[in-house]
Simulated scan of single mutants.
Amino acid sequence: MITYPNLYHLKYFVDAVALGSISGAAQKNLVTHPAISRAISALEKHLGTPLLDHRKKSFKVTEAGYVVVEQAKVLLAAASEFETLSLKLPAEETVVIKIGLSRTLSTAYLNPLLQEIKRKFPLSTVQVRFGTTNEIIEAVASGSVDLGMTIGSQSLATLKQTVVKKGQFLLVESTSKSDSDKRIESKSFILTEPRFETEKLRAGYRKQFGKTLPTLFEISSWEVIAQQVQRGLGVGLLPDILVSNWKAGSFRVLKAAWFDCPYGIYLHSLKARPQSQVLEFTRDILASRRP
C-alpha cells in the first residue's frame, strides 16, 4: 500500500527551513515548538532519512532535506490550487431548473428532454410550467422561469433568444365529414387569442374577400383547437408541428395564396443569469432536438 506524507508536516518543515528556526515556524503556523519538532521527526521517519542536523540552538539542513524542501513546495502549491477547484461532476450537480413551454411543444420536446436530464443529472429537479407564448416570455424575463420555449417571440433586450426550428402555420380541417363546398370563404374558423398569425389571417381574409373572417371559436390552446377540428367543427389555424403526427388522410390543409405565415421555435433565457451545467445541457438538448 502506498502512503503519502502529511501535508502539514511538509508545510512545517518548509517553513522551518525558510525561516531558519523551529520557533519561527511555530509562530507562523500558530502551533507550539514541540508540534513543529514532532512533525519534522514524523516526516523523517516516513521518508527514512534525516532532514535536519540538529545543533544546540539551531539546525543545518541535510542534502536530503534540501531535496525534500523543493519537492514539498511543488506539492503544497498543487494542494493550494486543488482547494480552489470545483470538482463537482456533471452527474453530481444538484440544482432546480425551471422550464416553461406550451403544451404543443411539450408533446414533441418534453418527454425526451426529461429522460436525458434524469440520465445525465440524476440529482437535479426539473419544474415544468405551461403557458402561452406571452406568459412564458414574461416568466423568463421576470426570472421565475430559467428557460422558456415558445412558438414565436418578442423583442426584449434582457433575453437571449435563439431560433431552434422553423415551421409554418396551416389552415387545417377534418376529412371526417363530407363537405361539397371546398371554397375557403365558405368556412368558419377556430383561432387562438390575438397573435401575429391570427391578425395576419384576419387582415388577409378581409383584403381578399372584403369581409370579416367568420370566427366560430377563440380558444387560447392549440391542443383544444385541434380537438375541435378533428370533430369537424371548423377550420383551425395551427402550427404544423401539432399536426405532424396526425393520421394521414384524416385532415386536409387548405391552401390560400393570400396567407403565408412561417414561425420560429425560440429558446429564451436571461442574458445576465449565470448558466449552470444543467441549464446549458438542457439548452443544447432542446436546440438539437428535431421532432
Rank of each mutant, 00 (worst) to 15 (best):
N111W: 10
N111P: 13
P112L: 03
L114A: 02
L114C: 03
Q115M: 15
E116N: 08
I117P: 07
I117Q: 06
R119W: 05
R119I: 03
K120G: 01
K120R: 11
L123R: 15
S124W: 00
T125D: 09
Q127L: 12
Q127P: 01
R129Q: 11
F130K: 09
F130M: 12
G131I: 01
T132F: 03
T133I: 01
E135V: 05
I136S: 01
I137P: 01
I137V: 13
E138D: 12
E138I: 05
E138R: 11
E138N: 11
E138V: 07
E138G: 10
A141G: 06
A141H: 08
S142C: 05
G143E: 04
G143T: 04
V145C: 04
L147F: 02
G148L: 01
T150C: 04
I151N: 01
G152C: 05
G152I: 03
G152E: 02
S153N: 11
S153Q: 10
Q154D: 08
L156G: 06
A157M: 13
A157E: 15
T158D: 12
L159E: 03
K160P: 02
K160Y: 11
K160T: 09
K160L: 11
K160M: 10
Q161R: 09
T162I: 14
T162H: 07
T162Y: 03
T162K: 12
K165P: 03
K166H: 14
K166W: 09
K166A: 14
Q168A: 05
Q168T: 11
L170M: 14
L171V: 07
S174I: 01
T175I: 01
T175R: 13
S176D: 12
S176E: 13
S176Y: 10
K177M: 09
S178V: 13
D179A: 14
D179G: 08
K182D: 10
I184H: 00
S186Y: 02
S188K: 15
F189S: 06
L191A: 05
E193Q: 14
R195H: 09
F196K: 09
F196E: 08
E197C: 08
E197I: 02
L201H: 03
R206I: 06
R206M: 12
K207G: 07
K207T: 11
Q208M: 11
G210F: 02
K211S: 13
K211T: 14
K211E: 15
L213Q: 05
P214W: 03
L216S: 13
